[in-house]
């Protein structure tokens, strides 16, 4: 199968067949991560620049390891050490980096649409590692891979996504991805954290946690940012935890073999209790592990994909 994409900007650009192809490719790369010598020469001689304007140890490390295991030369540039603080525009920063001829730029940026912006202005491939509250495609794919690993088939599964939907980039990519792969996605959170038109992304809003959890095959908890408490969206983490936190009791509403996921980093005792976070149903570390394989697949496909710009 070929991969008619130059960039990886979001789940939006892929159809179900392509999503499955990415997951299959990731499956193949998974084997490498269990070897003694965890390196293949696939991207030998390629240069990948991880351009991170926001701190994200987890995602950056995962992309860096993925690149290195494919034998690419990876270079990390972080926002604080870049010229952005000196007032340089994103386009100029990116053009300067491109002048050093990287094959792929992996970018994390605080502004929604930043990777789309870059992709229309650069010749090298752009892989979105999270843009504002827009998309985070590699996270959605690693979630899908983890679900597939535990449940076999994604189609027909009931997936509950719970938390701060408004401020989550993960959730938009996840809804789109799971919806395209045939899952039934339900969303739940305080109304202050539910943006309008969510249904249009391919999910169903349910009014409370119990309804969301009932008979779920997969429970995905989103991180609640501590700085949001006491402002206008929620009165306190304590109350949030009471009505939207996952614990041993309410998890019983889900199917007995339901898996519990979290994109990390977790707030133990807020959106997820320690008992659940460490319990037998959690697959959180599988997510992290699958992250490397998914990112290897994305880098491989971006390097080998369409060489001409799509537009």
């Amino acid at each position: 199968m070929n991969f008619p994409h130059r960039h990886v900007l979001g789940i939006k650009q892929f159809n179900a067949e392509e999503l499955n192809f990415i997951l299959d490719t990731a499956e193949s790369f998974k084997e490498i991560n269990t070897r003694k010598i965890k390196k293949v020469p696939t991207l030998r001689g390629r240069t990948i620049i991880n351009l991170f304007f926001e701190a994200s140890t987890r995602t950056r490390t995962s992309f860096e390891i993925a690149g290195k295991r494919l034998s690419a030369d990876t270079v990390n540039i972080s926002g604080s050490s870049s010229s952005v603080v000196k007032g340089e525009t994103l386009e100029d920063t990116a053009r300067n980096i491109e002048a050093m001829h990287p094959d792929i730029i992996v970018m994390r940026h605080g502004a929604s649409g930043a990777s789309d912006y870059l992709a229309t202005r650069l010749d090298c491939a752009v892989v979105n590692a999270g843009d504002g509250t827009h998309e985070h495609p590699s996270q959605a794919l690693l979630d899908a891979l983890t679900i597939r690993q535990h449940k076999g088939e994604i189609a027909g599964l009931k997936v509950a996504i719970i938390g701060d939907i408004t401020h989550s980039r993960v959730v938009r990519s996840n809804i789109d991805c799971l919806n395209k792969l045939g899952a039934d996605v339900r969303i739940c959170g305080p109304k202050t954290m539910l943006p309008p038109g969510l249904e249009r992304l391919g999910c169903r809003l349910v009014s409370n946690l119990a309804e969301a959890l009932t008979d779920a095959d997969v429970v995905m908890m989103l991180r609640i940012q501590r700085e949001r408490q006491g402002k206008t969206l929620i009165p306190s983490l304590r109350e949030y935890s009471r009505y939207f936190g996952l614990n041993e009791n309410n998890l019983k509403l889900a199917k007995p073999d339901a898996i519990v996921m979290h994109p990390g980093p977790m707030n133990r005792g807020v959106e997820i209790s320690t008992a659940v976070a460490d319990g037998s149903q959690n697959v959180i570390l599988d997510q992290v592990e699958n992250g490397v394989a998914v990112r290897m697949a994305l880098l491989y496909l971006a390097a080998g994909g369409e060489t001409q710009s799509e537009d």
Binding site: N2, E31, Y300
Partner: peptide, 21 residues
Amino acid sequence: DITMYRDDLGSRNDLAMGQTD
């Protein structure tokens, strides 16, 4: 599966990859 070890990435259309077992 030797896909990861091929020397022609970028000049081939088929990017499908099998598993080594």
